[in-house]
Simulated scan of single mutants.
Amino acid sequence: MPQADILLETGTNELEVIEFFIDEGPERGHCTFGINVAKVLEVIESPGLAPQPGAPHPCFMGAIPLRGLVLPVLDLAVWLDIPRVPRKNEIILVTRFNERTTGFLATGVTLIHRVHWREVEPPHQALANLAGNCITGLIRLENRFIQLLDLEKIILELDADLSAGPRPVPQDRRLRALIVEDSGVMRQMLRDRLEEANFEVTLARNGQQALDILRDSGLATPDIVISDIEMPLMDGYTLTKTIKADPHLAATPVVLFSSLITDELRHRGVAVGADGQITKPQFANLADLARSLIASHERRRPDHA
């Protein structure tokens, strides 16, 4: 892909959202949600699954064959604790992120919207702080809101292996990290893991908030920035591109840490100047990667002895 095309796609602070809904019945109507199109492989018609007795979670609807895959299917309505009126021709969103392929049952799909991350409103802080919150942003349309779902939270809570792995070895030297992550559960996991490795951690909920922190002359510049990609107001690609274009910040290493980093999409992080990219299933390696990048940048500094 030509470099110009990569930069046009990446760092423009835009995303495409697939809008879908759950029918809660005639009195409550449709509840509307959205997820990043980049996470969706396809949308298929549900074969009419039923809850599985003895399933590890009530939302698990079993598994179906799909072109050589065994696709686990989760009922979003059960997970979200909202009613769903069964209908004919319900759909399954087949998603791929965190190196896992998962199906999510919903009533139907409406449209695909191309929006700017500035148009995505963060949830109110009181809601964002709730342990059970799985809404990462709101898109205001003419007559309704689309709620962006944190599907990663669902997968993390159902699959403990994603947060498992060896604990980091603390180092004598205290380093500073700025974590930029809109998911509350991931933000806390990152903070805990890096603090175990003797990092002093500052938190930001989106790229714009992170940039404000970085440009605050009263605050010490962090040794490293670790950023998600999908965030309201400013995404991780745009944040990285902005940091690398700022002469006062460009030397700060940036790691993109996201469920969307795949072999096919890794070029996007390279295009905006990310120093490292790591998928969320590689969570256990994050502290070591951060320390390695900091040491590498320090060795390249002109004043390094």
Rank of each mutant, 00 (worst) to 15 (best):
L111W: 10
S227E: 13
N206D: 15
N13L: 05
R100Y: 02
G54D: 09
D75M: 09
E45I: 15
D228L: 15
F145A: 04
W117N: 06
R176M: 06
E264Y: 08
V94E: 08
V109D: 05
L66A: 06
A77T: 03
E230K: 11
L138E: 00
H30N: 13
V272C: 07
E14K: 09
T238V: 03
V73T: 07
M61V: 09
L203F: 00
A295F: 08
A287F: 02
E152G: 04
R268V: 09
R205M: 14
V270Y: 06
L138H: 05
I294F: 07
G68Q: 11
T240G: 06
V169R: 06
K241D: 11
A131W: 04
R291K: 07
M61Q: 13
P166A: 03
I112R: 15
A55Y: 04
M186Y: 03
E99D: 14
R266G: 04
D23W: 12
T221A: 13
D275R: 04
T279S: 00
L141T: 10
P72H: 09
E157D: 10
L190F: 07
I22P: 00
L214M: 12
G25T: 07
L105T: 03
K241L: 14
F257Q: 05
V255H: 00
D235T: 13
P56W: 10
R173W: 02
I294P: 02
H113T: 08
G184A: 12
W117K: 03
V115N: 01
E24T: 04
I22D: 01
M61S: 08
R301V: 12
C134W: 04
L249P: 14
T110I: 10
R167K: 05
P281K: 05
R291T: 03
E196V: 15
F60H: 08
G11E: 11
E152M: 06
E45N: 14
T12N: 14
I18E: 01
H248P: 10
R266A: 14
G137T: 08
H116L: 04
E119S: 11
L158V: 07
I213D: 05
D172F: 05
T136D: 07
T279K: 00
Q282T: 10
D212I: 09
A220S: 14
L239Q: 14
I18P: 00
E200P: 07
I22L: 08
V78H: 00
F104R: 01
S296Y: 12
L256G: 04
A274S: 02
T10L: 03
E298I: 05
R187K: 07
E157Y: 02
L15K: 03
R96S: 11
F21M: 07
T221C: 13
L260Q: 15
S46N: 04
T102W: 03
